[in-house]
Every structure is written in structure tokens, then in C-alpha cells.
Amino acid sequence: MSPDTRVAVAEVAELPPGARKLVEVEGKSIGLFNVNGTVVAILNACPHELAPVCRGRVTGTTLPSPPGEFRWGRDGEILCCPWHGWEFDLLTGEALADKRRLRTYPVTVEGGTVYVQV
């Protein structure tokens, strides 16, 4: 990422692990999430029906398991859309049960500032 195409969107101190911040960058609503120490930037539009997905719950999920068994995991890594409940992997943008994915943007952290390249 060349420094001149990135936009400063937050101070690192605003985004401790588990925190989120909604920002406007060049007319786009973007959600910043600190996922267990990694900051990610996601377009606030669900690829299903354009819901404000970044207002959804951040949670874990049930991991693959045989019938009748339940294994909880990935706490803090899963974003649930507030309209229809689709689950997304915050670290990759992929939906857990569909081919569509979140639009993500490269993030850099430098000198205590979070930058997003839009």
C-alpha cells in the first residue's frame, strides 16, 4: 500500500481487541474491527441484501462436528448480519454458508494510527 492512497481512520487506542468503530471514508460506510489483535476494515453492506452488516453481533460460532456434538469456537471472529443472520469470518470476509463475501479493505497500523486503503 503506498502511503498516499491510504486514509487515517482511527487511533489504535480507540480499537482495543473486541472493539469496533464505524467510519465514513470517501462516502463509504466502513466498519473497523479489532479481531483479537488484528484490525480489519469492512464495507458496511451485507452482500446478501445490503444490510448494515457492521452493526451486527460479533461472536463465535459452532465449529464442524458430528451430529449431536457441539464445539464452540472462533470467539470474536464472526460477524452476524442484523437482518438475516448470515455469519461472516471477519478475518477473511468469507460467509460461512454462502459464496458471497464481505468487501474488505487493506489496513495498516503505523505510529498509533489506523489507515485504510479504499
Binding site: 444490510a51 452493526r55 443472520g85
Partner: peptide, 8 residues
């Protein structure tokens, strides 16, 4: 698990 009503 998502609640029945919209959460936003």
C-alpha cells in the same frame, strides 16, 4: 440464535 427481530 440471531433473535427474531432485526438487531440494528
Amino acid at each position: 440464535p440471531n433473535g427474531v427481530m432485526r438487531s440494528d
